Amino acid sequence: MEWITRLMEALGSPGAGLLVALENVFPPVPSEVILPLAGFTAGQGKMSLIAAIVWTTIGSTAGALVLYGLGAWLGLDRLRRLADKIPFVTVSDVDKSDAWFDKHGSKAVFIGRMVPVVRSLISIPAGVSGMPIMKFTLYTAAGSLVWNSALILAGYALGDNYELVDRYLGWLSTAVLAVLAISVAWFVVARVKERRS
């Protein structure tokens, strides 16, 4: 926390943007900590509130584009080949997921940017499915703007109690991880039963 605070004080709102970009690619510190702290720092007069929102949205979008690029590099054909080597996964699973993303990708990216854990991960299937990069960038920036604004403004309003944002959103992150874990477990059990029958 001290290092994050120093970086923001030294670089201002571009520092907050850099931290959020890094968090998207490799989450050492979640945005639930960075963004309210940016709001608190803006409340102290050490950076502009508007600049904090703008720079963190730029950072979020830049970080998401890195993961989009990873997904594009992986590509659908390579993912299909990998599916044959991954236990319980089939090529038809990849094709169904790709078809779903073609239909719902815009909404998934926009809403996904506001869901802990999913925020970063949603960029990879967007790249894999070949979602147009300008469309991806637009929906990513829009979703990030909503998320970043909400958390920065919460930190700004809460002042010294900005850590409450992370405390309450921590429950949401845990719930999302639990749902993902249950989904994976259900998928594996269903596949085992399918193969036995």
Score class of each variant (00 low, 15 high):
V117P: 04
V117D: 09
V118Q: 06
V118H: 04
V118N: 06
V118R: 01
R119C: 04
R119Q: 13
R119A: 03
R119M: 07
S120F: 08
S120C: 09
S120G: 10
L121Q: 12
L121A: 11
L121D: 03
L121K: 03
I122D: 11
I122H: 12
I122S: 10
I122G: 10
I122M: 13
S123K: 11
S123F: 10
S123M: 06
I124K: 13
I124F: 11
I124G: 12
I124L: 14
P125K: 13
P125Y: 12
P125I: 11
A126I: 04
A126M: 09
A126V: 08
A126W: 07
A126R: 07
A126F: 08
G127H: 10
G127K: 08
V128D: 08
V128P: 01
V128Y: 08
S129T: 15
S129D: 01
S129A: 15
S129V: 15
S129K: 09
S129G: 09
G130K: 00
G130R: 09
G130I: 03
G130Y: 08
G130E: 02
G130V: 01
G130L: 02
M131S: 09
M131Y: 12
M131A: 12
M131E: 12
M131V: 08
P132H: 13
P132A: 10
P132D: 15
P132F: 14
I133D: 01
M134P: 05
M134Y: 13
M134A: 14
M134H: 15
M134L: 15
K135Q: 14
K135C: 07
K135M: 11
K135E: 12
F136S: 00
F136G: 01
F136Q: 03
T137C: 09
T137D: 11
L138K: 11
L138Y: 15
L138A: 15
L138V: 14
L138D: 06
Y139L: 14
Y139T: 04
Y139C: 03
T140F: 00
T140V: 01
A141I: 01
A141V: 06
A142E: 09
A142L: 15
A142W: 07
A142G: 10
A142M: 15
G143I: 06
G143K: 10
G143S: 06
G143R: 03
G143Q: 02
S144A: 15
S144G: 15
S144C: 13
S144W: 08
L145C: 13
V146E: 05
V146K: 03
W147Y: 12
W147C: 06
W147V: 00
W147G: 01
W147T: 00
N148P: 10
N148I: 05
N148V: 07
S149L: 05
S149D: 06
S149N: 01
A150N: 00
A150T: 10
A150E: 00
A150L: 14
A150H: 00
A150F: 10
L151Q: 10
L151N: 05
I152Y: 05
I152N: 03
L153D: 06
L153M: 14
L153T: 12
L153A: 02
A154Y: 02
A154V: 02
A154L: 11
A154E: 00
A154R: 00
A154N: 01
G155L: 04
G155M: 04
G155I: 02
Y156F: 14
Y156I: 00
Y156K: 03
Y156E: 00
Y156D: 00
Y156A: 08
A157C: 05
A157K: 12
A157E: 06
A157L: 15
L158I: 07
L158S: 05
L158D: 02
